[in-house]
């Protein structure tokens, strides 16, 4: 008997992605959908896509979704979760969405310890609007708004979201992964699963930051993009678990009357 080892996730609609060839969003969409399938939570999951290349995520995820204005996803997700505490609520955000215009909403949702999950796509540029500098753009990286390369004196430093958010009292689980290799993809999927489980167990704010390819705006092939993530981007943003208070939070939760 043949065994099915690879199939289309149920939580992913059969629409063709509008993403560029080689784009990391496509990979992460699939991972999130697989996790939702495996956890059997399709019917109780509500997602909030961002303004960014993933703005059309509702065309792909087969779960309830509501669009948020640019950067405001975590505010919306916080409120949805407060009104429907037994649903699984995630906000899907790019680096411009999360770390620039939406840094206040994102940081404060995390700091309040909202029991939501943020899927954070760090591709070091504004993908949707055509490759402008993002808060996560590396120093000396050229973009359309840093034509001479990002300069710390004028444009500040790359914002390390996982490091910053792990300092906040409200956060429970924060991991940075990368989808630049098969091993990285597997790790990312595990992290997404852990983040959703953290939420389902009622343990508080979880976020998975994912170093993701944007071959179009990096002006590289997909292969070179993967290499660039491994050799350059991940040096500034080392993958790893930045915070894991899950065990502790569980204990506190169990001790509570």
């Amino acid at each position: 008997m043949a065994k099915i080892v690879f199939k289309h996730p149920q939580s992913l609609k059969e629409n063709i992605y509008h993403y560029c060839p080689g784009c990391g969003h496509s990979i992460v969409h699939r991972l999130v959908a697989e996790v939702i399938d495996e956890m059997g939570i399709r019917g109780i999951t509500i997602g909030v896509p961002p303004a960014g290349c993933a703005v059309l995520a509702y065309n792909y995820f087969d779960v309830d979704m509501i669009e948020a204005p640019h950067g405001r996803g975590p505010a919306m997700a916080s409120a949805i979760k407060r009104c429907l505490p037994d649903r699984v609520v995630f906000s899907y955000q790019g680096d411009g969405d999360l770390a620039a215009i939406g840094i206040a909403e994102s940081l404060h949702a995390a700091n309040r310890g909202e029991n939501i999950t943020v899927i954070f796509i760090n591709n070091a540029v504004y993908g949707m609007t055509g490759g402008q500098m993002a808060p996560t753009t590396l120093l000396s990286q050229r973009t359309t708004t840093s034509p001479a390369g990002r300069k710390k004196e004028l444009d500040g430093h790359p914002v390390k979201v996982s490091e910053i958010f792990s300092q906040l009292g409200g956060t429970t689980y924060i991991e940075r992964c990368s989808v630049s290799s098969p091993a990285g993809v597997n790790k990312t999927k595990k992290a997404i699963r852990k983040a959703f489980q953290c939420q389902i167990d009622g343990l508080g704010f979880s976020m998975v930051e994912i170093l993701s390819l944007c071959p179009t705006n990096w002006k590289m092939s997909s292969i070179d993009s993967c290499k660039w993530i491994d050799d350059v981007l991940s040096k500034e943003y080392p993958p790893g678990i930045y915070k894991d208070n899950i065990a502790e939070a569980k204990k506190t939760a169990e001790a509570a009357p």
Partner: peptide, 8 residues
């Protein structure tokens, strides 16, 4: 312009 250009 814009998303029209995606897909090359």
């Amino acid at each position: 312009y814009g998303a029209e250009m995606r897909g090359g």
